[in-house]
Amino acid sequence: MFIEINDVNKQYNDKENRPVDVLKDINLSVEKGQFVSILGPSGCGKSTLLSIVAGLTKTTSGHIQIDGKTITKPGKDRGMVFQQAALFPWLTVMENVTFPLKKEMKKKDAEETALKYLQKVQLGKYISHYPHELSGGMQQRVAIARALAMNPETLLMDEPFGALDEQTRSRLHGQLETIWTETKKTILFVTHSISESIKLSDRIVVMGTKPGIILQDITVDIPRPREEHKKEMLEIEEHIMKYLKKEIDKVVSEELQYANSH
């Protein structure tokens, strides 16, 4: 297996210093080139799990291996795309995308590589623009190009389209699918949108909340492009909804309890 997540636990202490389980006994293996969505309600620890894979957050126990190597810190073998584009506002689009390439490449090579990936997300004409001159969708495409430019084996995406409007999101789904087919990256895609996960991924890992555990591991066996198979997509959606309904109810009732007790 390419990515191996072994018995990962993550705890933190709340305000009263009681330990809270964010992730409990997470085990997951992902094959090379697979597109895996991690789906769950807010607070289920899905972003924390991704952040651990990225090497930005430490586990309380357990470990993660990619290609046989244990993850201890962030690295260029894992490109990360966040919910906000996280572009550096003082750099142009081109300078943002060449940011990770500065050290190992000559300027000219870095710019050629960057341009290649910017063209992939159809932003080849915007290389000298600054981030504030671009729309949210365009910024997110630059962020994707920036992550791809390092040529990482794995692409980690943390609700990358969560802050975008519906039309933009659906266009970017198409672009991401194309990129994935062309580059054969292994993608871990965190989302809370059921339809998004069904539309994009080979496999959906459904997570539950408090503590964050894996509830279901669903293989999506619908041929692409999936828009043409609405019926199958709906079946899976209903199947997932059954599991998630309980979890969402749990979150809502806890929030109500919290509101009543304060």
Binding site: A54, G55, L56, K73, M80, A86, F88, W90, F99, M150
Partner: peptide, 27 residues
């Protein structure tokens, strides 16, 4: 913190992280 995280995933650490991200971000 998002800038710092993003830079770390792109391999920036230490002085490099400071001169290329933290300082320009505080301009």
């Amino acid at each position: 913190p998002l800038y710092i995280k993003a830079a770390q995933t792109m391999g920036a650490t230490g002085i490099d992280l400071f001169t290329r991200v933290i300082f320009p971000a505080s301009i």
